[in-house]
Design a protein around this nucleic acid. Sequence first.
DNA 1: AGGTCGGATATTTTT
DNA 2: TATCCGACCT
Length: 554
Amino acid sequence: MDRFFEGLDREQKEAVFSSSRIVLVVAPPGSGKTRVLVARFLHLIERDVAPSSIVAVTFTNRASLEMKQRVSTLLPFPPHTLNINTFHRLCLGILRRELGGFVLCSRDGQIAHLRELGIRNPEAGVERISRLKNLLFHGYRDATRDELELLSQYQNRLEERGELDLDDLILRTIRLLEEDPVLLETYRERFTHILVDEYQDINPPQSRLIRLLVGNNGGLFAIGDPDQSIYNFRGANLRGFLEFREHYPDASILTLSTNYRSAKRIVHMSSSVIQKNTMRMDRAVKSIRDGGDVMVVECTDEKDEGEFIVREIESIMGGLTSLTTGREKEGFRFSDLAVLYRTNSQKDALREVFSRCSIPYRIIGEKDDSFKSFADHLKGITPEGVSLLSDLIKKEAILMGMDEGTTELLTHRASFYDTLGIEEGLRRFYEDLLFMEPQDTYDVEADRVTLMTIHMAKGLEFQVVFIAGCNEGLLPLAMRDTDLEEERRLLYVAITRAKEKVYLLFTKKRRMWGEVRETPPSRFIDDIPRELVTMKRTARKKTKKRMKQHGLFE
DNA sequence: AGGTCGGATATTTTT
DNA sequence: TATCCGACCT
C-alpha cells in the first residue's frame, strides 16, 4: 500500500494527504483522478476511519464498479461491504431502509405513464418532466400551467402505484433528511467522510444532498474537472464547481496539472481549444510524453468520412494498406481505437461502412442492444429451485448467447446478492438492471473498435481517437439555445480521450434534417494552432481554395 | 399475431 | 430522406 502512495506525484500527494475537512480537487484529463480518489480512501482507512463510515459517490455504474474493484484489491474488504455507489443507488439504499415498500419506475414505465396521459412524444416528455422536477426543486417558478398540470398528473400516477422514478430517489431522500433532524443526525454520524467523483456533473439537488450529509463536521473530498462539464442540459452546470467556496467557506481547493495520458501535441492542442472558453477556472496542463499526432481531415460527405476512418484503421492495424505504403505496425489493438461523434444520428453512416469491412467494431447505445433484451428476459423468470442467483444469471446468459464480458459483469453483480437468499436477492438484482445501461455492461476486454457519442466516452481513454463530424451545426450542435462553451467542452472531452493520435474529421456536405447541406468546418478547428496539426484531404478535388477560405491554409 | 400504409419527426441523455 | 409509431387490415 505504501508503494501505492509512493507512485503519486507531489500535487496528487498534497490532495490525498490534505488535512482539510473539505477538499476540492481540480483534476484535468489524464491527471490520475480515480487514482487520487482511491488513494484518499486508503489514506482515510490508514487514519483509522472505519470503511463503513466512508461513502464514495459516483455518477455512473461503470465508475462505481471500477472504484469498488480498485479499492477492494488494495484493501482486505469484500466489494459489497464498501459504500461505493452512484448517487441514485445511495439514495435507494437510504429510502429502502427508511421508507420501505415502493416500486422503482423505470424509464419505460415513465414513457408508458406519459403515453397514457396523452403526451405526443413521451420520450422527450421524460426529459421535460425530469428537468422540471429538478428546476422546481430550487425555486424555479416560470413553469407554464400546462407543464405544472402534466407534472402533477404524472406524479399522481406514480403515487397511486407506489412508484418512485429516478429523480424521486434523490428528491425524496433530501426531503426525508430535511424533515427529520434526528434521522439526518443518524446519517451524519454514519457517513463521516464523503468522496465525490466527477464533481462537475453535480446538479443542484445532488449538491444539496451532499451538503446535508456533510453538515458542519463531516469530511468532503470532491474531485472533478469543470472543463469536462457536459451535462448542462440535465441541470448539471459549472455552478456546483464555481460556488464550492460559497457552500464550503473553509475548503481547500487544489489543482492537479500533469496529464499522464495524452502525448504533448494532443495536450497542447486540447488546451488551445478549451482556452477560448470564458467561463472557466484557468489553469495550465503539463504533459510528460513527447510526440502525439493531430490530424485534421477534410472529407466530401459522411460516407467518405466513414471510408477514410475504416481505411485509416486498416492502415494503423497493419492491413493491406500498410504493406503497400511500407508503414510499420504500431502495435495497437482494435480496442485501442475509438470513433466518437456528437449525435447518434451520425452512427448510421458509420455503421454502414463498418458493416461492410472486416474490422471488429462495437456501437455503444444501439437500441436493439442484446443487454436490454436479456434484462427483459430475466424479469420473466421465476427463481424456483435455484440456490445461487449468480448461477441462474450465468445459465440464462449463456442460454441467451450474451458475450463473455457482459455475462461476467452480471454474474459478478449477482454474486453480491447471493448472501441475501435467492427472493430478496433477485429483487435487488432487478433494481440493478433498472439502473443499468448498455454502456455499463459493454465488454471492455473485447478487442473491437468502439463507436459511441462523446458523452459516452467521458472517463475512457484510447490510443487513437477519430472525432467524426467536426462541422458547424454538428459540433457545435445547432440547437435553439446552443451553449457554445459546452459544445467546446465536448470537443475537449473528445480530444483528451486520445493518448497518441487524434483525428478531427469534417465534411464539405452532409445529410442533415433530411436534406444534403453544405457544412462548413467547425469553428473550433480555427482555434487549433496550425503548427500542431497535419492537414489531410480524402478527395483529389480542388478543395484547397475552400480550406484557404476557412483559414486552414496560408 | 403480423403486415402495410401514411404521417410526423429528425439535436446531446450518467441514473 | 430514413425511421418510428399508430391505425387499420388480414
